[in-house]
Write a protein that binds this DNA or RNA. Structure first.
Length: 494
RNA sequence: GGUCGGGUGGCCGAGCGGUUAGGCAGAGGUCUGCAAAACCUCGUACAGCGGUUCGAAUCCGCUCCCGACCUCCA
């Protein structure tokens, strides 16, 4: 039995709740993955990085987590009724599955670049057509679905009347949906009610992706795959369901309707929603052009940034805001994140070489323990990464002070230093999922730099300042910074 | 128009009844051959107007701005 003090904000109840797993020690988590008809954009990345931290923290607490994140490769309609996959295929002159594979690969590459852990299961919508058809059966059997010309619709009005569940998550009232629903939707005339949505759609002749079903040759509705796949791999009722804020309605609302409509139970206890990534104050969005691709951000090839920022700097930047807050991406903010990130990573290196002779009960121990415990409390409070990071920066000051002698080594016990090492590492790498990008330069560079530093030190000892400064300045031009400390010099990439 | 969420110091961003958030930038200092790095100190803040309270950035009301969803989006 794992004890936790974890509190999460549940979108369903609109308040923070203690996380109590259905099965002690186990957590089932479903996160809506990407629709693979285009390159992933940064907004997707922010959401998946957020859930990556959530996943990592649950693992850190000791839970056995089944993390399911789907790939939607069918059923996602455009305004004109064309399937996204089919449209992608037509434009690129490819098989629909070729499109799906191409962008799935790209998505996976980007997830790796952002250092996210892979989900336990990554099911594809097209691999679960049978399960979806089965769910349509159940919904019809329970009286919440009706067929029109080979398509099947979910009867939202009847569902709302019978269960009172429709609209709870997104705060919508069915009468308002009647009044406000647009009438330019596909097959509007087939629906009994404007807010009804397709769970199975009959395919037109030229439609590329289609399957046989009792109702027609067609394809499943957009929301259905998540209901079917979460049920298949996590059961009728699981712990956490996550996704971007913009999926609350209609996607998640309809998902809930389908799950309750087919098996009678609310699929998930806790609904977690990430907020949007903004750029210059506006939602970053594929459709309105206010966007920068991850690659452009890394290379700096975009009018929105003055230079490139590394993946870990971007990840760090994202973690400096809370997942439920909007995060405004600006060049200035990224520069600040870059400096902060490097400072933390440098401190981590410094930490490795710190030693203390005092075994226990040194004067600063309790203060340091407070900072560390505080960081874990922050994570327990709905995964408050910006606060946890703030504590880490307090530790950075302690670490640097110990190194430079502003704090005497006798003021901190060796066991406390060990605790700093353990916690710093756990939070930074295991939980927040950051990594030190400068570590990748193994090979002869370290040895070379040692030699250069020794030669420069020789020059300095001889008061040969021109030589000493030439070495420093030339290295600087190569983006290598020399840092002269009390115990000799060290270096790092700028 | 409906629903929801915001407006915090130069920028980003936590907090959400009494405590220094933190990062970056800026000012002064320590250290240094000089510089950088590091450390120390400092500054200016809670959109506006009322109210509740011993006490409000934090609660209530009004006003003004901004954003999201309502239509594909993480």
């Amino acid at each position: 039995m794992i004890e936790n003090n974890l509190v999460v904000y549940n979108s369903l109840s609109r308040q923070k709740e203690k996380l109590v797993p259905i099965h002690a020690g186990h957590i089932g988590m479903y996160v809506c993955g990407p629709t693979v008809y285009n390159d992933v954009h940064l907004g997707n990345c922010r959401t998946f990085v957020s859930f990556d931290v959530i996943y990592r923290y649950l693992l850190y607490l000791g839970y056995k987590v089944r993390y399911v994140r789907n790939i939607t490769d069918v059923g996602h309609l455009l305004d004109d009724g064309e399937d996204r996959m089919s449209k992608g295929a037509r434009l690129d002159n490819l098989e629909p599955m070729e499109v799906a594979q191409k962008y799935t690969n790209g998505f996976h590459d980007m997830m790796r670049i952002f250092n996210t852990l892979q989900p336990s299961i990554e099911p594809r919508a097209t691999g679960h057509i049978l399960e979806q058809i089965e769910m349509v059966h159940e919904i019809i059997k329970n009286g919440f679905g009706y067929e029109r010309n080979g398509s099947v619709y979910f009867d939202t009005l009847k569902f709302a009347e019978k269960t009172g569940e429709y609209g709870k998550l997104s705060g919508r009232v069915i009468e308002e949906l009647i009044a406000e629903s647009r009438d330019n939707l596909k097959n509007q005339d087939e629906k009994k009610h404007p807010s009804d949505f397709a769970i199975w759609m009959k395919a037109s002749g030229e439609h590329l992706m289609k399957w046989n079903s009792p109702w027609s040759v067609g394809f499943p509705g957009w929301h259905l795959e998540c209901s079917a796949m979460s049920t298949k791999y996590l059961g009728n009722h699981f712990d956490i369901h996550g996704g971007g804020n913009d999926l609350k309605f209609p996607h998640h609302e309809n998902e809930i309707a389908q799950n309750i409509g087919s098996c009678g139970c609310q699929p998930s206890n806790y609904w977690l929603h990430t907020n949007m990534l903004l750029m210059n104050g506006k939602k970053m969005s594929k459709s309105d052009g206010n966007t920068i691709s991850p690659t452009e951000l890394f290379t700096g090839d975009s009018p929105h940034v003055s230079k490139g920022y590394s993946p870990m700097v971007v990840r760090f930047f994202m973690l400096q805001s809370h997942y439920r807050s909007t995060n405004d991406l600006t060049d200035e903010a990224l520069q600040a994140a870059e400096k902060g990130f490097k400072r933390v990573m440098e401190a981590n290196k410094t930490l490795g070489s710190l030693q203390s002779n005092i075994i226990e009960n040194a004067p600063l121990d309790s203060k340091i323990n407070e900072i560390i415990d505080g960081a874990y409390s922050d994570m327990n409070d709905d995964f408050n990464t910006p606060r946890a990071l703030a504590r880490l920066f307090e530790l950075v000051t302690v670490i640097n002070s110990l190194k430079e002698g502003q704090i005497a080594l006798t003021e901190v016990s060796s066991s406390c230093i060990e605790k700093i090492k353990t916690s710093f590492h756990a939070i930074l790498f295991d939980i927040l999922g950051l990594k030190d990008e400068s570590d990748t330069n193994a090979g002869p560079v370290d040895g070379l730099m040692q030699l250069v530093i020794e030669l420069r030190q020789l020059a300095r000892t001889n008061k040969d300042w021109p030589t000493s400064d030439k070495i420093r300045d030339s290295l600087n031009e190569l983006h290598i910074q020399i840092k002269d400390g009390k115990e000799g010099s060290s270096w790092n990439y700028k």
